[in-house]
Design a protein around this nucleic acid. Structure first.
Lengths: 219, 219
DNA sequence: CGGGGCCTTGACGGATGTCAATCGCGGTGG
DNA sequence: CCACCGCGATTGACATCCGTCAAGGCCCCG
């Protein structure tokens, strides 16, 4: 399911570990790159949350993924990026030149397998997102998203939301209003509460998972 | 968009080219493997069309991809397959043991790049499918699918459909009825015609692409 | 000629999108 | 300190698209 996106893939980048080489700091709303930029590097998120999205000529926007610490951005992009990326919060990322990535992978055979594992993970993530987008109702999507977000942010009861309703909507393939209505509905069911602006508390994770259909079948 | 799925990636598998080693022949409806089977090999399609799909406990089915000659099935699967695969038509596939894949990739550095390119392609395919599933109306999806199918089957005017309406529906995230209605609508618009059972002629590819929103933004 | 898939077509209902009004909160300036 | 403003979120009314259910047609094959 959604909450399995990008899990448990350890960073494999050997490079200049202790140094600050290739580190970029971003404030909230700062762009990391735009669609069409040269994709000579990929990025490993060190801190913060970033947003990867594709904007269409008619204004429609699809958020492809949110990237949390440990995630890779831009893996599998060939010559130029096919999407935009910007920071939702203060964030730090490490740039990984693609050349060094390939060289490292070739020098150390066990890394080749990790590369394949990352590719597999990437593919699985997007497949799971597809299934979510095409087979789940609005409330199931919202519940799935909250479960996913909780896992990615450390399983704490109170989630400080790094993204707006519009971001959630564009990720889940819904409208702002539908997201809002279903968050309200979940609150009415006692599954979550909204302790203050920009945060959500999960009061009944078990039930939230049931609504999200986190049952065995989904992976 | 859709029609860019799996394009222009040449087979990289060196192995016993001229021989018949690892070749499997399938009749229509024959399974290639099931979810949970050992994923020790992936498969390159030589001839025919196969269907990759995931069946859920509640009976819902999501077709993840159709595989045409030149396509790879099972790339990125780790220990066991996470989906079923069967043949829609008579088909031949070449089994590629994963061990030989990794070894080959490591021995020849240019293949590492091809592996990355394949991974990139795979990720892009699924991303495009996500966008289709979550941002397009039914008629846009059907039109996209027909454009995609046409490209994959050699751009001939008359398409002999290898799959049923149910397959199309489960690929596009629609119902059989909605697919049927929109095919009828496209016929009414003069964009396609149905010369006989199991085939479709594209009469106005330009307009079909417009309906599919094959405009520049989509890839 | 009859049967069984598969496909098409119609009627209807419900979930979600659209449009619009309002709320709540934080920032800013008087 | 308070009033105002602006943005995001919420809520409501309504429209629309698509799914559901049901009937019938087409075609292949026995």
């Amino acid at each position: 399911m959604l909450q399995t996106l990008h899990h448990d893939i350890a960073p494999i980048w050997i490079g200049p570990r202790g140094t600050e080489a290739g580190i970029r700091s971003l404030r909230a709303q700062d762009p990391l790159f735009f669609e069409g930029d040269d994709a000579g590097s990929l990025y490993e998120v060190i801190e913060g949350v970033l947003r990867v999205c594709k904007v269409f000529s008619d204004g429609r926007r699809q958020i492809i993924s949110f990237a949390f610490p440990g995630d890779l951005i831009g893996f599998g992009q060939t010559d130029v990026f096919s999407f935009d990326c910007d920071a939702l919060t203060y964030a730090r990322v490490r740039a990984i030149p693609k050349s060094s990535l390939l060289r490292t992978a070739l020098e150390r055979s066990e890394l080749g397998e990790k590369l394949l594992a990352i590719a597999a993970n990437e593919v699985n993530s997007v497949q799971n997102l597809s299934i979510l987008l095409c087979r789940k109702s609005a409330i199931e999507r919202v519940a799935s998203f909250l479960v996913y977000l909780s896992k990615r942010l450390g399983e704490e009861a109170k989630i400080v939301m790094p993204m707006t309703r519009a971001d959630i909507a564009d990720y889940l393939g819904l409208t702002i209003e539908t997201v809002s209505r279903n968050i309200t509905k979940l609150r009415g069911m006692g599954v979550i509460s909204l302790p203050g602006s920009g945060s959500i508390s999960i009061r009944d994770m078990r039930q939230l998972c049931q609504i999200a259909e986190c049952d065995g079948a989904m992976h």
